[in-house]
Each structure stands twice: as structure tokens, then as C-alpha cells.
């Protein structure tokens, strides 16, 4: 997949994770990588970049693990950016599905239609 495109998607996912609650780095990485097959090493640079850009603020909190954890919290700017990205994504993915669904919604339906068409051309 185009890396720029992928980056944008992961950015959206990172923002989305942090919209609901503050999280520490490892938690963000784990939450995303259990849904998406992405390398963890792609998430951290994005988390860091978004923090530098002012979309997240950070603070330290003691943990029972020993060392304090760095928590990330979404800022107002970050939320605004999230909404923009999200709208863009919804529009894009909506369009993609409209195109894909022209052939039918379910795999079986698509396969049946395709077989019918093949059969027709053979005759």
C-alpha cells in the first residue's frame, strides 16, 4: 500500500484511540496493532509527530510497573484535526464502497453474477 496513504490511516487511528481516553504509548500501540496488521514501529513516529504538531499534550503518571508512564492527551487542535481527517476518510471510504458494491454486497452474490456473465460470453 502507498506509504503516505497508510500513514494517513494510522494517524486517524491514533487520534481515534486518544479521543476517548488518555493513553500511554505502549497502550496506543497495542490497541492499534491488535486490529490492524501494521508494524509497531510505524505507530510511534506518528504519535511523536502528532505531539510535536500540538495535537497531543503529554504528562507523566506513576504506574504500578515502576517507572512513571508518559500519557498522551488529545488537545482541542487535535480534536479538530481528528474531525477533519475523519470526515475526509468517511467520504473517501463511502465512495470506495459505492464503487465496490455495484457488483453486489456479498461475496457469493458477486461470484454468482460473475459466473453468469462468464457463462453468457461463452455461449
Amino acid at each position: 500500500m502507498n506509504s503516505q496513504f497508510k500513514r494517513g490511516i494510522i494517524e486517524l487511528c491514533v487520534l481515534s484511540e486518544l479521543v476517548g481516553q488518555d493513553m500511554y504509548g505502549y497502550m496506543v500501540i497495542n490497541n492499534i496493532s491488535c486490529h490492524l496488521d501494521v508494524n509497531e514501529n510505524t505507530i510511534y513516529p506518528i504519535l511523536r509527530r502528532l505531539t510535536i504538531d500540538g495535537y497531543f499534550s503529554t504528562y507523566l503518571e506513576e504506574s504500578n510497573q515502576g517507572a512513571p508512564r508518559k500519557y498522551y492527551r488529545i488537545t482541542d487542535l487535535g480534536f479538530k484535526y481528528y474531525m477533519e481527517l475523519r470526515n475526509e476518510w468517511d467520504r473517501f471510504i463511502g465512495g470506495v464502497y459505492e464503487i465496490l458494491n455495484q457488483g453486489g454486497k456479498k461475496n457469493e452474490e458477486i461470484l454468482r453474477k460473475f459466473e453468469e456473465r462468464i457463462a453468457k460470453t461463452k455461449n
Binding site: 504509548g25 505502549y26 500501540i29 510511534y44 511523536r48 510497573q65 517507572a67 508518559k70
Partner: peptide, 15 residues
Amino acid sequence: EILKDHEEMISEALA
């Protein structure tokens, strides 16, 4: 800063 972040994340993973 990057090293500190990684130290933290790796300790979590080790734990």
C-alpha cells in the same frame, strides 16, 4: 526523548 519513550515502551513489553 525518543530513547526515554522507547525505554518505557520496551519495559511494558518486557513486563
